[in-house]
Design a protein around this nucleic acid. Structure first.
Lengths: 354, 354
DNA sequence: TCCCGGCATGTAAGCGCTTACATTTGGATT
DNA sequence: AATCCAAATGTAAGCGCTTACATGCCGGGA
């Protein structure tokens, strides 16, 4: 959420009163506006006595600097933007939290917008945040219109692609190898004797993570000598409900899978729920896996077998990279984080073939 | 998330390049900046031919207006702020989504910040958003420092208190009666024969909603002729984990409750999970209830008995109220929304007394 | 005593926009 | 043809801040 649509202000009612300005403070303290500004931003440059007078005036008047004016004049905002695909699910919450905490350490502020998994909206939000003067940007994944990258480059705006790892781009990324991680999980699944696999994936257009995760599964299958016919893939929206519906579709098919691998935990939880509604026991009748290891995975009944992603570390690293770039470093190298397979209760041996 | 800490920009590196300005566009199109501005904001005032030239220049240059400059000059931002206690849980997600959608209809943009359930941080975020030029504010609950209300009043800044209903304040609120809703649920619980009730509540200092919900339970008990000794209350942080811990504490007590009422669904899900870990069957051994009816409640095993809150409608109404106030109306009356008790699986008859 | 340098502060020029007001233009009206 | 009015556009004054540069001040070294 945060920040939406075009910033078309036309026709909106005008605010009347504004608070005291730096002028008012300067007058009250008997100094120039420059001194007030210095007190606020570089107190060391001002002698103690003056500083006290100024701060007193600030307090008395309840002065708070106008952010727009400040950003406009200084050509920097102390704000860093992040655009995530959704706020509806907790996937990004933990990582973002860590990101924010780290930024805070360096005096930066975070602004979050969501793109609803739509590339056009993401582009719009990027422009929106840039227009708002963010000093840098954290984006999710790397799959976006070249125009956007060109735009960012032209403005010299530092950014980092998170939740992904890509050594081939010149943009720095911080994340994990979605393909390898999912392949690892798929190998475990195959190790349990499953050979008909259903996949519930998030939509893959404009979503490198979803795409790579599926590729990981495909690789594992083909390495095990299983043909693509063993795989049924369903692309769905990102919600518990969608996971449930897709699971039903998969299971009602004549040649139903013995294991259903989901692109993320939210879908998997929906699948687990539907299994129960259908009277299927997990994992005896069917195995289900997720991806992300969010809180949901652990309170699901039975507990979800999934891939653990180091969200907090990813957020922290993203912040470090950006701050480094703001400090003048060229786009640092990409950072690869490790994932871990969490074998819990929803994955078990394949049921005997029908 | 979004927006954090003090906006202390001092010492941060300066951005270099900026995009084309309105001047550049004016020059390219052979018109004045005023005309460009009009094209962008009030196209009807500009004759077709000119408009086309201007838009062509805009496209060619990739011009995007500088938001800070715009806000500064126009003294309005087309942005509305919301400060919610947390983004970690989905409690506010749905309502906020509806809020945003409605705002979008009117050309407004949403900015979200989180207060981490801390009154001081909330105050800071309010000032922060105001400094950023938001035209109005949505806040959660009504319980905050009078200074904040004074500040808002002095700036003439429209705001609405959501997720709560309070006819006594002169601020407008949109929400439901937390006390009555929880009292209704408590009556159901008592109706099932429970007489030793545990309560897992969010911290109640600076949280009117948590406080009122507990009061609702107390009222129901006393109306049923049960003394306060029948109630054990635990205040905890807002997380699944905390709910689980609190539940254990409650149940390990000698005189353990037969029903545990939780201040929200997240805590309740934690409690349900812990019950299972402790080998207790819900609701046979112990009943558990939640509040909010978020998605989690329905996929919990067993499904959570809880209070349904009309989140989407609340968000929508909040937007309408704010837009009305921006249109000049004085703070409208408060809006009371209805809640509904969702009797699902976690509430059952009290177990026979030990 | 004079001069220099560094510190504390002031001056004022913008930052990129909006908008009140002034000016121009081209009919329509007489 | 002269007049008037509305529509289209231009002019320029800010909005509230930062910051390069100028100024004034004071103490110490020559």
């Amino acid at each position: 959420m945060a920040i939406a649509e075009k910033p078309n202000i036309q026709g909106l009612e005008r605010r009347r009163r504004t608070g005291p300005t730096i002028q008012d403070v300067a007058r009250a303290a008997g100094v120039s506006t420059a001194t007030v500004s210095r007190c606020l931003n570089e107190p060391d440059l001002v002698i103690e006595a003056t500083r006290e007078r100024v701060f007193k005036a600030v307090d008395d008047l309840g002065y708070a600097p106008n952010f727009s004016a400040k950003t406009l004049a200084a050509n920097k905002s102390g704000t860093i933007g992040a655009i995530i695909p959704t706020m509806e699910n907790a996937i990004f919450a933990r990582g973002l939290q860590a990101f924010q905490e780290e930024l805070g350490e360096f005096g930066y502020t975070l602004l979050v917008a969501s793109s609803a998994y739509r590339q056009d909206l993401e582009a719009q939000q990027i422009r929106n945040l840039v227009a708002r003067g963010v000093d840098a940007l954290m984006l999710i994944g790397y799959d976006r219109d070249p125009d956007i990258y060109a735009f960012l480059a032209k403005r010299g705006l530092p950014f980092v692609n998170a939740w992904t790892y890509n050594r081939d781009m010149d943009a720095s990324s911080v994340g994990f190898d979605n393909r390898a991680a999912m392949r690892g999980l798929a190998e475990k699944v195959l190790g349990f004797g499953h050979s008909r696999i259903g996949v519930i994936s998030a939509h893959r257009t404009h979503n490198d993570r979803a795409r790579e995760r599926l590729e990981g599964i495909q690789q594992a299958l083909s390495a095990a000598g299983l043909g693509p016919s063993r795989l049924s893939v369903l692309d769905v929206n990102y919600s518990i409900e969608s996971g449930a519906m897709a699971f039903r579709t998969l299971m009602e098919h004549a040649d139903s899978p013995t294991a259903v691998m989901c692109g993320n935990d939210v879908l998997a939880v929906g699948a687990v729920d539907m299994a129960r509604q259908m009277g299927l026991t997990v994992p005896d009748d069917v195995s289900i896996t997720g991806f992300d290891d969010i809180e949901l995975a652990q309170i699901s009944t039975p507990r979800l077998t999934t891939v653990h992603v180091p969200h907090r570390e990813m957020g922290k690293r993203a912040a470090e990279i950006l701050i480094g770039m703001l400090g003048g470093q060229h786009s640092g190298p990409s950072t690869l984080l490790k994932t871990r397979i969490m074998l819990r209760e929803t994955l078990g041996p394949a049921r005997a073939s029908a």
